[in-house]
Design a protein around this nucleic acid. Structure first.
Lengths: 315, 315
DNA sequence: TACACGGATGAATAAAAATTCATAGCGGTG
DNA sequence: CACCGCTATGAATTTTTATTCATCCGTGTA
């Protein structure tokens, strides 16, 4: 049996299989051979390049970038949204939809979702999730207290409530301000039954949904006013902080930056966050690049949803 | 869920499946979705052109020609051997090997093989079959008597015997000359027990292996001398014959050409041949083109083994 | 607003394909 | 020549994949 005969057979089988859509069993009959042989010929046809499978990158998707991010930062998943302009509003819109879609399609049935409620990206994400009977979760937990003026706090509450409603889950609000005036005040708040109940859910989280912020310029810090003062942020920066997530600061390697502020924040810690199976970071934009990079380096998140401009800068 | 998100998913799944060689089940886990969804995405990826399967024609094979022959003449199978020169000897060598390989790989276990023993192509074919334990048949039947001088007759006998030995089958010789001197002589021979026994096998044949000959120039007719006289061949030609197989003449449409010679031939008739499930014609060469074409038109064969030059002329 | 249709969905299942297994043959070596 | 390692083989089996099925949901229509 010469090489040519073998190649001829590979082609013949491959043709019948891939182009004529015949079953291996039919081919084996037609060609008077065993199904096992057909299977083996098909495999060899692929190995030897008689059959080649090519995958086209669909327009508007960036698998190379995604792969680059996954590889370079050890992410479980990277999702890059198509976006036509490198400005905050289009980016928010794009990553919001993308994150929403990701959540819609990958949410398990018994998940306990933690939401760092005050990020604009997350707001957009939750807004973009469309109701669906298939979307089910067990519980939605607010993982940082509210910040700023009461209207923003309400917004936060609504977000958790809404996500819970969308997924038929139990909402678990964290009825406290994210930043309180003193360590003593924090101790008091943490003693509260309802606050305690929320905090106790942290170790049960199967998913955490977090935003990522640069120290400045920070829309959140600026707008909502009273989260941290400029001086406090300067202090964190001097300790090496390059970004924050859930009101917790981290340095350029993603290591938590300890500081006096930690004792005045009511919410999940970065270490607690790291122990959650799936931490989804939703963030994009020129100013946030370094914060996102650090966050990934420190494995604070394992899924990133971002836009293509930010992705390019991260690589 | 936007179109882009869908395409992204298709790509992602296709990549993991085709390039990373993951099972659908693994992918479904990794991507947090059901295996059914992965399967459906893969199918859609192919339909929508995200995944493309291309089949390369290996050098030295001629699937287009084969396909052309199959289609144009309604063959079950066409096998075209690689061949570098359009001369008889290289062609015989090529098609002999190819036919041998075809038989080796497609012979069933319980087949009854008829062999039209006096064709050079078939001689080369049988010679090229290599012994193999897997090659098994029930019976090998000589379907035309011997022709010409005794040494050629012996050759014929050896061929049947050899093929039987190669396949562990019972040899069934046809102990008679292919062409006898008169209808009366034919009647006598057919009355012979052993001749009868061979003829009786014809309806049990599951495969027939036949050569195809042009009326002239005919190496066989010329060399072996006494098959038919020039005058007899002229007569057949005048009745419309353009070729013969197993000493039976057919016209340009492959219809049997009846004539006085029929009653002097001991061997299978073309009608008997047509009722065999698999009739493999092994032939090639400039002079035989029209005979082969006719043979196929008349469905006298359903498998053709030839060389690429002949194939091109046939199309 | 009610209702039917088309299209998704995942669990279960049927179908198809890959692999295991037990042999057997080939070619090279002692 | 006997032995070994290698490869090929088809039947049986396991594994993997596609499809069925029962539901559900969103949407267009009366």
């Amino acid at each position: 049996m010469s090489r040519t005969d073998e190649l001829r057979m590979m082609f013949r089988v491959a043709h019948l299989y891939h182009e004529c859509q015949l079953k291996q069993a039919d081919i084996s009959q037609q060609l008077h051979m065993s199904q096992a042989k057909v299977s083996r010929l098909l495999k060899r046809a692929e190995v030897e390049g008689v059959v080649r499978v090519s995958i086209n990158v669909p327009r508007g998707t960036y698998p190379q970038l995604e792969d680059g991010l996954r590889q370079q930062y050890g992410l479980n998943e990277a999702i890059i949204a198509e976006c036509y302009e490198d400005r905050d509003e289009p980016i928010l819109s794009a990553i919001g939809s993308a994150a929403a879609h990701y959540i819609e399609t990958t949410l398990g049935e018994r998940e306990v979702i933690g939401v760092s409620s005050w990020s604009t990206s997350l707001l957009r994400t939750v807004d973009a999730i469309r109701p669906s009977k298939h979307l089910k979760a067990e519980r939605v937990v607010q993982i940082v207290g509210g910040i700023g003026n009461p209207s923003v706090q309400t917004h936060a509450t609504q977000m958790v409530t809404r996500l819970a409603a969308l997924t038929g889950a139990e909402p678990q609000l964290l009825p406290a301000r994210g930043v309180v005036s003193s360590p003593a005040a924090q101790k008091v708040m943490v003693g509260d039954t309802y606050v305690r109940a929320a905090l106790d859910q942290f170790k049960r989280l199967t998913i955490a949904l977090v935003g990522i912020g640069a120290l400045r310029p920070s829309a959140i810090f600026a707008n909502s006013g009273s989260a941290f003062s400029d001086e406090e942020i300067d202090g964190a920066a001097r300790s090496g902080a390059v970004g924050e997530s859930s009101l917790r600061f981290f340095d350029s390697e993603g290591k938590p930056v300890r500081g006096p502020l930690d004792d005045r924040v009511i919410g999940i810690t970065l270490d607690e966050l790291k122990s959650v199976r799936r931490v989804i970071g939703v963030a994009g934009g020129q100013q946030k690049v370094e914060a996102i990079r650090a966050c990934m380096k420190g494995k604070l998140i394992n899924v990133l949803v971002t836009d293509r401009f930010t992705a390019e800068k991260l690589l």
